[in-house]
Design a binder for these strands. Structure first.
Length: 558
RNA sequence: UGGGGGCUCGUCUAAUGGCAGGACAGAUGACUCUGGAUCAUCUAGUAGAGGUUCGAAUCCUUUGCCCCCAGCCA
């Protein structure tokens, strides 16, 4: 996959892995991608995924995609497909796809082993009792009255739990560790709980008990021969338990290493809140281009290269960090600048009439496709007497430092001619309906033979040849940096996060564009063709704006 | 308050006892047929206090602040 840049530099995880290889602790690197199929992938997952992927391939190792499907109440087949599709789009490659549920049988055998070792027991307490007896952060918990059951009774009860003899919530299997442990995770953690409904999306009704994360993840890692189980910081306190289980079982022990998760400003990362956002219709769906799900970013026009570059640039560490959304945008601009074709598009048109240009004449002018890439070649654009330019590019009374078109000023029409504004015509309400200009025929192509300069070049389209289009301008979805913290999501939605421009005019070469095509509309920004676009009804999404230093100047002036 | 983790320019991140560097953001300028891109320059940081050392972001002591953990979620 050509769009996977090899990652550079090092970090504490790569150093640890290299050291493990040197010391012989592991001879082959195998990592795993552990998504739970209960939602769509978002930018937060991408960091973890790419660390797993790159750590594997940089060391000649391999990656296993393992779905963590241990809770039938939350997981759906739909997400199993969507996750693979999104991860593949990013360019991640795995040697095989597995499921935690593939190992339910073996895991059950291991549980029996622990019971026989006297290290696990069936607890009949209600969930409330279990919770109450766990103690608090500062007080030890109380042992369950069922903690002392015989191995035989535990074995019998576990078998019957598995067969479905008991209702949900009536019993659990717990590890017997230490109810007074200062780390709450070690206070006799639950291993299996009883769940009858709904049936599991892969194993159906075969099982009535399902393992908890702690009693599944490490065991699966071990069974699959994972060398490094890389995860986020919140699992750090689970590591003692991860190691305890495998030690008691005497099984192969992978190394768990934790790193800080990605926090991105203005992005919603909470799966629960994200789902609610979609379900309440505040956004168009999981691929609404304002979201930071992978499919939304794809629809917005973000590229795998840009996203991977972004992850590379933020680094890997253990600090709690908040990444500025501007960094992501910078990566997107970087990639798109190098690779996207330039087009002329006028989003808020105003009519320009070239008074001294011959009626009916149409000229074909040469326009460069991508100044960053000579191999992209050039194209022809039609020029004629009546044009559209951007409303912003004309001012009847210009502010200081405004170099664009205004009465008496001369500018260049990109790849065409120098024009000078002579007058404007207005309707009864005083709105400008036409800007009248004259052109200098000797400046054809954009250069004046007498060597005179203009301070500004503006884009344009020929009215007779332009295509009609709808342009969707996106901005950050939220008004606050951390929308996950907002009590009421609806109240922090940025009302200007989507502005639909229904009357855009674009150059004729855009006629055959299809879903996902990416362009730079010169002087405006990067855009891509939306999936709802059709030949007679073009729709473009704004991926990201160009940097706009005039907007900055103007803002300062106000 | 118990346990675990963290604290370096505004934001991320390097420096592994020896010149605190890079990126994004910001500022200024050069260049330009995109007020884009590019290039150059600048601004800006070791949480506080002690100590060890010729030398400390790094080692020690101590204080402060932030994050995570009391699901039969992952």
């Amino acid at each position: 996959m050509e769009n996977i840049p090899s990652s550079t530099g090092t970090d504490f995880i790569r150093e640890a892995v290299a050291e493990d290889l040197r010391s012989g602790r592991f001879s082959k690197i195998r990592t795993r991608l552990p998504p739970e199929p209960n939602g769509y992938l978002h930018i937060g997952h991408v960091k973890a995924f790419l660390i797993d992927y790159f750590v594997a391939i940089e060391n000649g190792g391999e990656l296993v995609l393992r779905f963590d499907d241990t809770n039938p109440a939350k997981e759906e087949l739909e997400f199993v497909h969507a996750i693979q599709e999104d991860a593949a789009w990013l360019g991640i490659q795995w040697v095989k796809v597995t499921y935690a549920s593939d190992y339910f049988g073996k895991l059950y055998e291991w549980a029996i082993k622990l019971v026989k070792l006297g290290l696990a027991y069936v607890d009949d307490q209600t969930p409330e009792e279990v919770s109450k007896n766990r103690g608090t952060l500062t007080e030890a918990g109380n042992p369950s009255p069922w903690r002392g059951r015989s191995v035989e009774e535990n074995l019998d009860l576990l078998e019957r739990m598995k067969k479905g003899e008991f209702p949900d919530g009536s019993r659990i299997l717990r590890a017997k560790i230490d109810m007074a442990h200062p780390n709450m995770v070690m206070r006799d953690p639950a291993m299996y709980r009883i769940i009858h409904e709904p049936p599991h999306h892969r194993t159906g009704r075969e099982w009535c008990i399902y393992p908890m994360y702690d009693w599944s993840h490490g065991q699966n890692d071990s069974m699959e021969g994972i060398s490094h189980s890389l995860c986020s910081m919140e699992y750090e306190i689970h590591r003692p338990l991860y190691e305890w289980f495998l030690q008691q079982l005497g099984e192969f022990m992978p190394r768990q290493i934790e790193f800080s998760r990605l926090n991105l400003s203005y992005a919603m990362m909470s799966k629960r809140k994200l789902r609610k956002l979609v379900e309440t219709g505040l956004v168009e769906g999981w691929d609404d281009p304002r979201l930071t799900t992978l499919r939304a970013m794809r629809r917005r026009g973000y590229t795998p290269t840009a996203i991977i570059d972004f992850i590379r640039r933020i680094g890997v560490a253990k600090n709690t960090s908040w990444i500025d959304y501007a960094l992501l945008e910078s990566c997107v601009r970087d990639d798109l600048n190098k690779h996207s074709l330039r087009k002329m598009a006028v989003i808020d048109p105003i009519k320009v009439v070239i008074d001294n240009y011959p009626d009916g004449l149409v000229e074909e002018l040469e326009a460069v496709n991508n100044p960053e890439d000579p191999e992209a070649g050039s194209r022809k654009v039609n020029f004629s007497k009546i044009l559209y330019i951007e409303q912003e590019d004309f001012r009847e009374s210009p502010p200081p430092k405004y170099y664009r078109l205004y009465p008496g000023n001369e500018v260049r029409l990109r790849y065409a001619y120098f024009i000078r504004c002579e007058s404007v015509t207005k309707d009864e309400a005083g709105n400008i309906v036409e800007v009248h200009c004259t052109y200098d025929p000797s400046t054809k192509g954009g250069d004046a033979p007498d060597g005179r300069k203009v301070k500004s070049t503006i884009h344009w389209v020929s009215a007779a040849h332009a295509l009609h289009a709808e342009v969707r301008e996106y901005d950050r979805l939220f008004t606050i940096e951390n929308p996950d913290d907002a009590e009421d999501t609806a109240s922090v939605i940025n009302p200007a996060s989507l502005v639909i421009k229904p009357n855009a005019k674009v150059e004729a070469s855009l006629a055959g564009t299809a879903n996902g095509d990416k362009f730079q509309f010169e002087r405006i920004g990067y855009f891509c063709t939306d999936r709802t676009s059709a030949p007679g009804k073009l729709v473009f999404n704004r991926t990201v704006t160009l940097k706009d230093s005039w907007a900055k100047i103007e803002k300062k002036q106000n």
